[in-house]
Amino acid sequence: MRRFEYIKPTSVQEAVKFLADHPDEAMVMAGGTALVVMIDQGVLRPDYVVDLGGLSDLQGQDSSNETLHLGALTTVRTLERDPQIKERFGVLAEAASQVASVRIRNVATIGGTVSYGEPQTDIPAALIALNATATVVGTEGSRDVAVEDFFLGPYETVLEPGEIVTRVGVPAPSPRTGGCHMKFTIGSPENKPVANASVVLRLDSSGRCEEARIVMGAVGPIPLLATKAAAILKGEVLNETAFAAAAAKAAEESDPVDDLRGPAWYKRRIIRVLVERGLTWALSRAAAQSQ
């Protein structure tokens, strides 16, 4: 592995100052599961690695209020296993449970997975489906960015040099809401997906669809919100026919490319299947919530 200098800041302010002073030479590390591999492979060649691990401002979860606050260093494994998150933010826990392997989930963090901007990862899709917001801190102060607006392209985000994600806020879903996260891989379930989908459905008191959020991963440069597919469902009575139509529309909205995980046409087919299955599960969960 290439040599670099290891920086261990003692505060968020110190971290962002160092990053702002070394915009081209420093990289941020949280869990390190992506960064270390890329340095090892020579894809990234930082002179400095700024380890955020241990910064107390980035730790902890607070689910006492309506909004779930997650420190950026919250591990994927915590998202998967925390009883509160599992019960109230099931889509997030479900997405977390499908990320890579337990070894990775034990160290990978929510802040890292959002900041990395990889179009295939599961957590960002779930966060978008749940209307989550990321808090970004730089030398100039902090700002909140909807995760939906966070990604600009593959491995490209709204983060400016010297900015880091400090926490993620997830608003509590309203009653009569259900969601589902699905991932499709070739070979081991630990592999990167051919496609993944996070779906959240909110029903009105009559059982019609009040809002649908359908997020598709690995089938575009960023996690894609299938707005036209969601529009098909809004205000409708939800059934197989509606789901099939929405899934077909979502597949049209996807924008996959050919790669080692499959040809584009196949990824489109799979995203259709995942969205349709996800919607079916989400409805049954939303209906269970309504009772």
């Binding site: 591999v37 492979q41 070979g187 379930p189």
Partner: peptide, 14 residues
């Protein structure tokens, strides 16, 4: 395929 991330292998689940 330069890495096992791009070269899937059978895992116990399969």
């Amino acid at each position: 395929n330069t890495h096992l991330m791009d070269y899937p292998l059978p895992s116990m689940e399969l």
